[in-house]
Design a protein around this nucleic acid. Structure first.
Lengths: 236, 236
DNA sequence: GGTGAAGGTGTACACCGTACACTCGGATGC
DNA sequence: GCATCCGAGTGTACGGTGTACACCTTCACC
């Protein structure tokens, strides 16, 4: 009956820590995520976290595991091409849910089981599709970070946490100035916004992503069907 | 005649700061590069740097400018394909000289003139090659970070600053353990090392890079020759 | 009911980026 | 020749970071 009125203070464990870290990063961004801030969120003193993760690096690795596990499992009913495509797009959806994930994924170098599982099953999709192990190897390299649902680009629209409100007048003046020095950049960015009156609307990210993905998938298929072999590789 | 014997203590300027920062990063790595450490290197107090760069972010932007300027200018005598290829491979050489550059390039979001110049001239190569502005736009996206001489991959061989010395016995045992859980990963990594007795020699980075690059360039060419247009794009 | 281990605490350290007020040397104007 | 001014370099300080280490508290089990 003398039930305490404060929160029952359930014990910490590794999973609670990781889940809280992911949610907190979703909310306040990865830069603001510090051990102290996370501890505060969990109503605990900073050093308490170190009973559950060895250090911040391991915390980040754990967070990667959490989000990689969110990627849909392969769909066995589809052909390799559709299956890979769907899976990669699922990874992309996960990345859109966790905007911080890209930079963390990029910075990681430790190969955790969850991550290896993801690679393992992706490789399996190519092998099942009739790709040689050799070609599959190169294909995985070619996919690169696209396998994780993103590609690195400078000036990505989602890079800045908050774009300043567009000042149309200033933007037009800036475009004018750019026209001389960067005519080509201007030319291709005009195309990107031809159907929209607002200047610099940005690209259709999903379209761009799928454009490159399909280009690669088609290329892979052509190589496979041509019986590609790396025997012709120049031994540098 | 009363020439001072200590170093003449030549004045700092923005360029000296940036050059020193690049060299220091080459030597001690980007993580160890702090304003304090850089100041020490220049024989100056930390705050002195702030007379020449606004903050650390601007320092990093300046460092990017320095290394991007190292990329070879386009060769006008070649066709678009060979010219783009050569240029991208030159960017890659620059990146190999500055191992820290990849992560810095990835983290930057500010578009400095030097960086814009590089993009401008790259875009120009496609336009000169008969690509429509529309297609060029998507092509630049598809190139992604490959334009900068790298692609993001997990477990890149160059990721760790110092791989621990290989313990062959432990490695074999680990492979044994992996064989059950990750047969596919094992399968494609065996291919990568078939001509080498040492386990886990790693991939031929240059080959992998060019494999994907050429796959894309060939794909671009096919699209151009087919008169590709994005009019068929599904309006989401 | 005692005990041992695991979980949570408190304090402390070294390092980081940088705000702010200062000193001092050298160019400029009279 | 002297005053002035300005900007490069200095010194101190603050609030933040990750985390080592010693401590205490709680709880399961014999």
């Amino acid at each position: 009956m003398a039930q305490v009125l404060v929160a029952p203070r359930l014990r910490l464990n590794r999973d609670r820590v990781l889940q809280a870290a992911v949610q907190l990063a979703d909310r306040i961004g990865i830069d603001a995520l510090s051990m102290r801030r996370l501890a505060e969120e969990l109503g605990v003193v900073p050093m308490a976290l170190y009973k559950h993760v060895a250090n911040k690096d391991e915390l980040l690795d754990g967070m990667v595991d959490v989000i990689v596990a969110e990627i849909d499992p392969p769909n066995g009913d589809l052909g390799w091409k559709a299956a890979v495509r769907l899976r990669v797009l699922s990874a992309r959806q996960m990345l859109l849910r966790h905007p911080w994930a890209r930079s963390v994924l990029e910075s990681r170098t430790r190969e955790t089981p969850t991550v290896l599982d993801y690679m393992e099953s992706t490789i399996g999709m190519f092998l099942a599709g009739g790709f040689s192990a050799d070609l599959t190897h190169h294909v995985m390299h070619a996919l690169g970070s696209r396998m994780w649902g993103f590609t690195q680009e400078l000036f990505d629209a989602s890079a800045g946490p908050d774009r300043p409100p567009v000042d149309i007048a200033a933007q037009v003046a800036q475009l004018q100035a750019m026209a001389e020095r960067y005519p080509h950049i201007l030319q291709i960015s005009e195309v990107a916004t031809h159907d929209d009156s607002v200047v610099a609307r940005g690209c259709d990210d999903r379209f761009e992503f799928e454009f490159a993905l399909d280009l690669l998938l088609d290329g892979f298929e052509r190589l496979r069907d041509a019986g590609w072999s790396s025997d012709a590789r120049p031994t540098a």
